[in-house]
């Protein structure tokens, strides 16, 4: 995936978190490196909603074994995870 496509994906994820999970509040402070778990942006329910968005809107299913903190610490890492899972097997 090109840098442009990666940037698009990141922007899409930021938009979802800002508009849907934060209801537009504190949107200006949300950056690709905002610590999502540490700051409570992602709790268990919001994590599930993010996963639903990734599945339904981006077409990537995150397997349970990937559900660890490192992959969700910020949106840069979430983007990397989605890109990794988009890679064709083999």
């Amino acid at each position: 995936m090109s840098d442009i496509e990666r940037a698009d994906l990141l922007e899409k994820l930021i938009g979802f978190v800002r508009d849907d999970l934060l209801n537009g509040q504190a949107g200006a402070e949300l950056t690709p490196t905002t610590p999502l778990l540490e700051w409570g942006v992602l709790d268990s329910i919001k994590t599930a909603r993010l996963l639903a968005f990734i599945r339904d809107d981006i077409g990537v299913r995150v397997p349970p074994k990937k559900m660890v903190g490192d992959h969700f610490k910020d949106l840069e890492h979430v983007t990397d995870l989605v890109l990794e899972l988009q890679q064709p097997v083999g």
């Binding site: 610590p35 778990l37 540490e38 409570g40 992602l42 709790d43 268990s44 994590t47 559900m67 660890v68 903190g69 490192d70 969700f72 610490k73």
Partner: peptide
């Protein structure tokens, strides 16, 4: 095991 990672810790 990782308090910073909340429910994923």
């Amino acid at each position: 095991t990782d308090a910073k990672a909340a429910h994923l810790g």
